[in-house]
Simulated scan of single mutants.
Amino acid sequence: MLVILAGVYGLIAGLAAPRAVDFATAGSSSAQSPARRGQGYGLGVGGLLCGVCASTAYQVGWRPELVLWLASAWLLAVLACVDLAVRRLPDLITLPLAALVVAGLALASQLSGDGGSFGAAVLGGGLLAGGYFLLFLAVPDGIGFGDVKTALTTGAIAG
Rank of each mutant, 00 (worst) to 15 (best):
L105S: 01
V86Y: 00
V101S: 05
L70F: 10
V86N: 00
T94G: 13
G113R: 08
A57I: 09
G104H: 04
A108M: 03
L89I: 14
L107R: 08
W69A: 13
G113A: 11
Q110V: 11
G115Y: 06
A71N: 01
A77M: 10
T94A: 15
Y58S: 15
Q59W: 12
R88V: 10
W74Q: 06
G61R: 00
S72F: 11
A99Q: 05
P64C: 08
Q110I: 07
L111P: 06
V60N: 00
A80L: 06
V86Q: 06
L100N: 01
L68N: 05
Q110W: 11
L89W: 08
D91E: 12
C81K: 12
L100H: 03
S72Y: 08
Y58P: 03
W74N: 02
S72C: 12
L111C: 07
G104A: 07
V102N: 05
W62M: 08
L79I: 03
V102L: 15
W69P: 01
W69K: 10
D83V: 13
S112E: 14
V102F: 11
E65F: 07
A57R: 09
A98T: 03
L105T: 02
V82W: 01
L68A: 07
A54S: 14
C81A: 15
I93E: 04
S112V: 09
P96D: 04
L92H: 09
V102Q: 04
A73N: 02
V60G: 01
P96A: 08
V67T: 10
L100T: 11
G113W: 04
L66P: 03
L105E: 00
A57T: 11
A99D: 03
A71W: 03
W69F: 15
G104M: 04
S55W: 13
